[in-house]
């Protein structure tokens, strides 16, 4: 056996950790599989897209969503871990909200699933609270000068969800037809929803 001084890879260390915990009966691999499946298949940004499409189609739901996000999301069953208290804020012609967690990567899991890689990167976490307009531009969103930006740093268990503007030209679409237009990026605030 040749000796190898390099630290084993994260992949190998993950395998090692799982083996150690499973062989001692502390973790059941089927439970591990179940958690993975939940966040790969069941809980994701499609949840949020349904919320937004409903808010666009039903003015009363929109009002409830902005008044009490947690309750309105609960009406659709989007409750659970990392969603104890969700506040929904609307983007308008004059105001643009964008969400971050500078301290770790907190994200409204029940309604958007797990965060995308760019949200968790040091560059986003560090810079969006200091130069949001430049960051949004790098991500492909250029806002007019007269739009006020509000950055939401999620430093407690309050979670933030952006209600993006409904794009012009979608007036004739049904709620169901609106769902696929709504992107995760728009619900975090780094993009706008485009008309089809």
């Amino acid at each position: 056996m040749t000796s190898d001084d390099s630290t084993p890879s994260a992949a190998l260390r993950t395998e090692a950790l799982e083996q150690l915990l499973v062989e001692r009966g502390l973790v059941d691999p089927a439970v591990v599989d179940g958690i993975i499946n939940t966040y790969e298949a069941d809980i994701g940004p499609l949840n949020g897209a349904k919320v937004v499409a409903k808010a666009w189609s039903d003015p009363d739901y929109r009002r409830r969503l902005l008044e009490d996000g947690t309750a309105a999301l609960g009406e659709l069953g989007f409750i659970g871990t990392q969603g104890e208290h969700i506040v929904v804020v609307e983007n308008t012609d004059k105001t643009h909200n964008v969400v971050v967690c500078t301290l770790c990567s907190c994200y409204p899991w029940p309604v958007l699933g797990l965060p995308p890689s760019w949200y968790k990167d040091p560059a986003y976490r560090a810079r969006v609270v200091r130069e949001p307009r430049a960051v949004l531009s790098e991500m492909g969103l250029d806002l007019d000068d007269d739009v006020e930006i509000i950055v939401r740093d999620s430093t407690s268990e309050v979670r933030w969800l952006v209600l993006p503007q409904r794009p012009a030209g979608t007036e004739g679409l049904t709620e169901e037809q609106l769902v696929p237009l709504v992107t995760r990026d728009a619900m975090v605030g780094v993009a706008k929803v485009a008309a089809p």
Binding site: T102, D121, R125
Partner: peptide, 16 residues
């Protein structure tokens, strides 16, 4: 971990 406002991280990653 307290990253807010720190510098030197380069460009953000555009969404894929």
């Amino acid at each position: 971990a307290d990253l807010g406002g720190t510098t030197g991280w380069g460009p953000v990653r555009p969404p894929r």
